[in-house]
Design a protein around this nucleic acid. Structure first.
Length: 491
RNA sequence: CGGGGAGUAGUUCAGUUGGCUAGAACGCUGCGUUUGGGACGCAGAGGUCGCAGGUUCAAGUCCUGUCUCCCCGACCA
């Protein structure tokens, strides 16, 4: 068994996630390559994410809203570095009508329907939202304004990878507007912490988080903060970001408010987001060679009951399972009974393992007679015989225990694969031969960062609180460094 | 956009000194026996061999063109 779990390089990678998504089969048209179909089981995970993170977002005083998919081209060109960051990966709507083609066996673009101004399919919604915000905000009384939207966005990446980078993906993007910079900065860090907490509590993922370097920051932001998770193969996966936009956008979108003294001011803004990439992070963090392993809090099915029966005792066993779900497992959510009589029990065991269901209960006549059942945990494959009287309590405890031990494992993976090195030679050697992250001083110059990236493929991931202000030497040039950064190869 | 690889059944693929009716495994359908770790037997369905042209008595196989996909880079969540 490999110890790297499911990664894009693992054998049969494409087989592993097939319960969650599949590549959109649009092979005849290269223009839509890189799109994904999220299947019902995968979407159920996404719904759990939406529900739980959605609650955290609401608790932060943020309201949900929805803005248009299409952005006038002129909006995108207002903030110089923003447009520079996204210009090369936009889908553009140029016409609004089709007509029958000359041979009569299809359709073609009606050239007469050309738009005067092209529309951009949103790669992110700063521009279209902030144009609207400029109409909503006139006074200090309108602030802070905190808006979130769950939406799809399109980024025409040159190269896509199932899960980790698709042309279209779903996400949540939050946008807030504040009267003072300190307040905006606090919001940025609060939301960053929200993501870290969500990753820990729900996804059972331990992460590093902190400020991104100049070259890694969001196009148009003053500062970007990120959450970095480590996959089982030691590579980094950026999980969420939170940006301090300063006044960059409020100035060009003409958002102004009258302060208490009656002076017109440009407010301070933030934006923050997490995407369906989380599904990829979730899979790659916990799963093993037998398939997915899902943390109970996010698993669409928490407990699956596999009845073991033959033609003679089928009804009896199935009736018992229903009873089990209704009474013996009262209060345990998302329990599924696999009543299929056309596949073998062994097949079902295997299938639910592949789907990552945290707990499997096996019940046959043998168990019924003994007033017990067999309980199997997905994370450790441990089998327990549990008396029916204590079943509910044990399952409740087990679910919590699985959640906890997955987090512990993730923490262990992160910490045990984060190293320090004394020289650049060792730094280089690490990324050639070993897995995992490095903590190393960096003088902050773009030259050093670029050289390191070119020579090792590793980049700065973030500057953690612990690394901030830690004096030392730049791992590359040897000059004085005042911060220690997290370095890693990333997806 | 650069470098590699590949297009044959739903999927993964085999199939060259060109030669009969194009194959396997898995999956799918039906019947029967099974069901405590991916069941088995029998019967069956499923193909314009990416597309176009050429060479030949004969092309999945050789030649030319063309399209597409995948992988590795650059770019990025």
């Amino acid at each position: 068994m490999s110890n790297k779990g499911i990664t894009p390089r693992s054998e049969n990678y494409s087989q592993w996630y097939l319960d969650i998504i599949e590549r959109a089969d649009l092979a005849e048209n290269s223009a839509v390559r890189g799109c994904m179909v999220i299947k019902p089981y995968g979407y159920a995970i996404w719904e759990n994410i939406q529900k739980n993170m959605g609650e955290m977002i609401k608790r932060a005083g943020v309201k949900n809203a929805y803005f248009p998919l299409f952005i006038p081209k002129s909006f995108l060109s207002r903030e110089a570095s923003h447009v520079k960051g996204f210009a090369k990966e936009c889908a553009i709507v140029t016409h609004y009508r089709l007509k029958e083609n000359s041979t009569g066996d299809g359709v073609e673009v009606d050239e007469k329907s050309k738009l005067e101004e092209e529309l951009i399919v949103r790669p992110t919604s700063e521009t279209i939202m902030y144009d609207t915000f400029s109409k909503w905000i006139t006074s200090w009384r309108d602030l802070p304004l905190k808006i979130n939207q769950w939406a799809n966005i399109v980024r025409w990446e040159k190269r896509t990878r199932p899960f980790l980078r698709t042309a279209e993906f779903l996400w949540q993007e939050g946008h807030t507007v504040h009267s003072r910079h300190e307040e905006a900065e606090k919001e940025v860090l609060d939301r960053l912490n929200m993501y870290v907490t969500f990753a820990r509590e729900y996804l059972a993922m331990h992460t590093y988080f902190g400020r991104k370097s100049e070259s890694e920051k969001f196009a148009g932001a003053l500062n970007t903060y990120g959450v970095e998770a480590m996959m089982q193969d030691g590579k980094a996966l950026q999980f969420g970001t939170s940006h301090d936009l300063g006044q960059n956008f409020s100035k060009v979108f003409n958002i102004q408010f009258a302060d208490k003294e009656g002076n017109m001011q440009n407010p301070w803004q933030t934006s923050w987001g997490t995407s369906t990439r989380m599904l990829g992070a979730l899979i790659m963090s916990h799963s093993d060679d037998n398939g997915l392993v899902l943390p109970p809090k996010i698993a669409p099915i928490k407990v699956v009951v596999v009845p073991i029966f033959n033609d003679q005792n089928k009804e009896k066993v199935l009736a018992f399972c229903e009873e089990m779900r209704g009474e013996l497992l009262e209060g345990i959510e998302d329990v599924e009974i696999d009543t299929r009589d056309f596949v073998s029990a062994g097949f079902k065991f295997n299938e639910w393992e592949k789907k990552g269901v945290p707990i499997r209960i096996e019940v046959g006549e043998r168990d019924m007679n003994a007033s017990s059942c067999v309980v199997v945990r997905r994370d450790s494959n441990e089998k327990l015989t549990v008396g029916l009287a204590e079943l509910r309590e044990r399952i409740g405890v087990l679910l919590e225990d699985i959640q906890e031990s997955l987090l512990k494992k993730s923490e262990q993976n992160l910490i045990s694969k984060t190293h320090r090195v004394g020289s650049y030679d060792e730094f280089k050697k690490h990324f050639e031969e070993n897995e995992g992250f490095l903590v190393a001083g960096w003088c902050g110059s773009k030259e050093c960062e670029d050289s390191i990236k070119y020579e090792t493929k590793a980049t700065t991931r973030c500057l953690t609180v612990e690394g901030e202000g830690k004096n030392g030497h730049c791992i590359y040039c040897g000059k004085d460094a005042h911060d220690e950064w997290i370095w890693a190869k990333s997806y």
